[in-house]
Design a protein around this nucleic acid. Structure first.
Lengths: 328, 328
DNA sequence: CTGTTAGCGCCTTCAA
DNA sequence: TTGAAGGCGCTAACAG
């Protein structure tokens, strides 16, 4: 393997100059730059990232922490994110927190050991003191999809309240009055927002909120399954349902297909999140998040922060993207 | 931040000794070891991975290349893999090849720049000269889920032929004679294996193979969708179907739900792969791959190779795990 | 069993 | 605009 020393002697310059070219510094004459680049390609030289990291303290690694890897929606986001990071010369280290704060802390430690330049987090809960510590160290951190308001970090989110409001209003326009709300961990801000959108839509339509049409205990597959079971068992059950996220939607669809196919035909469903196989959910409406935009934006944000660490102390930005109401 | 120097002086030993303790070498007295560890925890010392990598040439990074990130089955595998790697002190760098050889090469280059200790690959095609180059350099590489027979690398696979044979036989036992085969990129060995299992099961039951019951042009969502459309349009269409993988199954289910709900009731389906929301596919049978075992095994294999790079030149191991036939 | 020491490859002042 | 030179923190001989 070649080092900058080899490149330097081949190009007839010093290692310092090669380093300057590699790091795209301004003050290198165009002739020298070309000479050096020629030698680089000629020798097939590649930067030794460990050496560079040791000396500069920059690793060109962006760490990512997700509650779980097996979530299609999130992974679709990371497909876009990785693409942008890669093109900027960064690699993405993707780690799962296993839906626990302890997991998040473990991942944060591991990432710091690797001297990552920045971190993207989809937090698993509203507990955020461990993230606060990171920010206090001046390490760039951006929240994605979910956030923790008390922790002042840049965040890329969607308009959860508005998206839910719109879909509920659409159901109301279709003539439904008894609309079920399935799923939601109310310790999470984003689910409170969605719940709020639901209640406001009802309120604005003059429909009284009825707690017995709601099932709020969770955001996983089982939540949807048992939520539907519980709600449909009631004699005066809803005739339309809103599922708070993809997992809940999947669980609800499973229940309907397996246990209540005859009821499925009589009710109408809608759900937050849209993926490539959403048509299996048999929903009339879906609230689609702008994955591509979210991914691009968060990647750009973290790169900005990484490259201008000084401006990190500025006011934090919380970006809300619009969702799209899809009629299936 | 503290360095081994600080730990050394705090513990009253040399930096070499600290390094030995950190790397869990044998020849350190128990007393010294305890002293050093005490100082480490007392100071909250953490190894500087870049420095360690620079000196030793080992990064404690395992690179992973997948055709795409948004595949639930694969990501479930990586959930297990990451867990094991993490516990062994390694991190996983997950990158997408975007289903192209060029993408694979790009990822390989990036990983080599990072001095990864080993690589796990789910190849996107049967083209493997770029992987050969990696192996020739002595860099540990293991294939997962798919393989390239010409490239002699360790591989963790399932018994594709046997799994398919069993499910087709089950359909035959249920009385079906006209069984459709949907999906399959025959340039991939694993799909040829599945196709072979299908044909053998028919043959062993004395049922003649009929090409018009097959639709072999792809392994993506659209394959399943249009495959079903095409096959069901025929007047003498199959009354049972086998889908070659998850994506095809999803596409087929979408077609049936959207376009042919009345036919769906009259036919029976089966598919390769099983995920947490498979019940939405309305299959009678599923061929489940042992994800946990696969993940654990491949993680263990790559760690073994990484830790004993010398034995890398030995005969390569190709492991075939049994699938499980699930009746839903 | 432990200490001394020479770099690994690169970046970054400082001086020219 | 360029070069010289001193480490960044750690590991791995080698010596004791």
């Amino acid at each position: 393997m070649f080092t900058i020393k080899d490149v330097a002697s081949d190009a007839g310059v010093s290692t310092a100059t090669v380093s300057r070219v590699l790091n795209k510094e301004e003050n290198v004459s165009e002739v020298t730059c070309r000479k050096v680049n020629a030698s680089i390609t000629k020798l097939g030289y590649r930067l030794h990232s460990a050496a560079s990291t040791l000396k500069s303290g920059k690793s060109r690694i962006i760490g990512v922490i997700v509650p779980e890897l097996s979530n299609i929606f999130w992974m679709t986001l990371f497909e876009y994110i990785e693409d942008i990071l890669q093109k900027a010369g960064y690699i993405m280290v993707l780690g799962s927190s296993g839906n626990s704060v302890a997991g998040e802390i473990r991942q944060l430690d591991s990432l710091q050991d690797r001297m990552v330049d920045g971190i993207i987090v989809i937090p698993c809960s509203q507990e955020g003191t461990h993230f606060k510590k990171i920010l206090d160290k001046g390490l760039p951190l951006v929240f994605l999809d979910r956030w923790i308001p008390e922790i002042h970090a840049d965040s890329v989110l969607v308009d959860n309240e508005g998206g839910t409001y719109d879909v509920i209003r659409a159901l109301i326009s279709d003539g439904f009055q008894k609309i079920g709300f399935v799923g939601g961990d109310m310790s999470h801000v984003i689910f409170r927002e969605r719940f709020s959108g639901y209640k406001h839509a009802l309120m604005d339509a003059g429909i009284p909120f009825n707690e017995k049409y709601t099932y709020l205990s969770g955001i996983v597959l089982e939540t949807g399954y048992f939520g539907m079971k519980r709600l449909l068992e009631k004699k005066d059950h809803p005739d339309a349902f809103f599922y708070v996220n993809l997992m809940t939607s999947l669980g609800a669809a499973q229940y309907l297909i397996k246990e209540a196919p005859e009821i499925q035909k009589k009710i109408v469903c809608a759900g937050f999140d849209n993926v490539y196989f959403s048509s299996l959910l048999c929903c009339r409406y879906l609230v689609a998040q702008p994955e591509k935009e979210m991914g691009k934006l968060v990647a750009q944000m973290i790169l900005d922060k990484v490259r201008h660490t000084d401006s990190c102390t500025e006011e934090n930005r919380v970006i809300r993207l619009k969702t799209e109401l899809i009629r299936c």
